[in-house]
């Protein structure tokens, strides 16, 4: 029978929907511009899965051709967006998207980020830490006499 059944098509559609929804979640909630952009790319991946599944089910190449176009657009988008992120980082020296709130739509209230809601910072090990090495081999005999005799 069919090598690519209708049920397989719905499997691909469900996976594409999951990637799309999780990507949207990340784009809405994360504040790091790079992570936001990665989430947008993940939404594109979900759409690509959907298109490839449809193309295979209908037995033509159109889905794959469209996915190639998506790949091209994603590459262009990545280059432009990374250039923009670099420019924005040079201006504010931070990747926080909340620092760019003055370009929001007029009439919108600004988002207030309360620092008390942030996760506690992980304990820093300090600027100079060295790995703790395990003792290996036999401890050599210490030359104790050399400085005990110095007293007299």
């Amino acid at each position: 029978m069919n090598a690519f059944s209708f049920e397989m098509l719905t499997n691909y559609l469900m996976l594409g929907a999951a990637l799309m929804a999780v990507g949207m979640l990340g784009f809405l909630s994360r504040r790091n511009m790079i992570v936001m952009f990665l989430s947008a790319e993940m939404m594109l991946q979900g759409v690509a899965l959907t298109l490839v599944g449809f193309g295979r089910y209908h037995g033509n190449w159109t889905g794959q051709v469209f996915t190639i176009v998506i790949l091209t657009v994603a590459a262009c988008e990545a280059s432009i967006a990374l250039a923009l992120i670099l420019v924005l980082f040079n201006r504010r020296s931070s990747l926080d998207v909340s620092l760019w709130q003055e370009i929001r739509e007029p009439g919108q209230p600004p988002t207030m980020d309360r620092a008390s809601e942030a996760e506690p910072e992980p304990a820093s090990t300090g600027p100079e830490t060295y790995p703790h090495l395990l003792i290996a081999g036999r401890e050599p005999a210490h030359p104790v006499e050399a400085w005990t005799h110095r007293r007299d």
Binding site: L28, S29, R30, R31, N32, V35, S94, L95, D96, V97, S98, T111, D113, A115, E117, A118, E119, P120, E121
Partner: peptide, 8 residues
């Protein structure tokens, strides 16, 4: 950074 420790 604080923006990585805090989702909106």
């Amino acid at each position: 950074a604080i923006y990585d420790r805090m989702a909106r």
